[in-house]
Computed example of a mutant assay.
Amino acid sequence: MVQVPSAQVPGVYHRRIGDIVVTALSDGYLDGTVEVMQNIAPADATRMLTDRFRPGRRTSVNCYLVHAAGRLALIETGSGDYLQPTVGKLQQNLKAAGVNPADIETVILTHMHPDHSAGLTNPRTGEKFFPNAELVVHENELRHWQDDGAMGRADERARTLYFQCAREQVAPYHNRTRTFADAVEVFPGVTSVPLHGHTPGHCGYMIASGGQSLLIWGDIIHVPEVQVPRPEVTMAFDTDPQQAAATRKRTFDRVATDRQLIAGMHVHFPGFAHLVRQDDGYLMLPEPWDQAFGG
């Protein structure tokens, strides 16, 4: 008797950038309402999603391994146990990719929202999920999420899910944390690209090798179906919505002009794509699956 599949295949996808191998790992997805989108009427957002065959606001959560110079880094750690049961899949996909978390020597964060940094530490035991890793993050992130005044001004949900989560997740790495302020090489072939607005220290990372490059742009977008054609649309959880929108428009212009390959934490898995201009806006073109894996 033929056995019917009962589970999806692992969320793992490899992409070569010159001599560097980038592996996309799915942490899962988050479902939410359109009401968190700003500068757009909920009915318009719903219509745009429906027109693109999306039943609602479903957000992919992606992480990326970087194999470079015989070393291994991880960009983002996913959601851990803090959010919906549809996320927190990073560890099982690391296993599927044949990667031992103890072999990851550097964990790099684009920022410290819980769908990016909440997979650093087991909140029940305080145990590091990446016991041998150095944590790398923009200095503004640590400063902001450790700011008691900013925490006091936040609502209860943000205090718990953003400030408290960030603090308890990074605490075990306090003696192995490296911060930066500008564009610097944070790992062989990986250079930070400050893209502030979504959070005070939000960054992307440019991966370059052998004349090829990939910009992992973090949270430049959360809802591709809406924010690519309407880059003025912001999110309720943007720390500075006006700056986030300006950064998005500037980044869109740059990657379209340069024909730059991008990857994003909330671009539908595996998250590799190009952006082109269309009429007065932009169109995202997901990169086709490369079965040859650069061969």
Rank of each mutant, 00 (worst) to 15 (best):
S209A: 14
H222V: 05
E185D: 14
P188G: 12
H196F: 14
C203T: 11
P231W: 09
A183G: 08
Q227M: 13
T234P: 02
Q227D: 10
C203V: 11
A183N: 04
R230T: 03
P188N: 10
H196M: 14
P231K: 06
P231D: 12
C203R: 00
S209E: 01
D219T: 03
I221Q: 06
M206L: 15
A181N: 09
H196I: 05
Q212K: 11
L195H: 03
Q227K: 02
W217D: 14
S213H: 10
A181V: 08
D182F: 07
I216S: 13
G218Y: 05
R230M: 13
V193H: 03
Q212T: 07
V190W: 08
M235C: 14
Y205S: 10
V228T: 09
D219E: 15
Y205C: 09
S209R: 00
G204L: 04
C203L: 01
P231F: 11
A181F: 03
I221M: 12
V184P: 01
E225Q: 15
V190E: 09
G201M: 02
T234D: 13
G211P: 02
V233W: 05
H196D: 05
I207E: 07
L214K: 01
E225R: 00
E225V: 10
G211M: 02
R230S: 12
A236N: 07
V226A: 08
V190L: 12
E232K: 07
P224C: 09
D182T: 14
V193R: 11
H196P: 01
I207V: 15
M206I: 01
P200Q: 08
E232Y: 05
P224E: 13
L215N: 05
G197H: 06
V186L: 10
P188E: 11
E185M: 10
G204T: 01
A208V: 00
A181C: 06
P188S: 12
S192T: 11
T191K: 11
G204M: 03
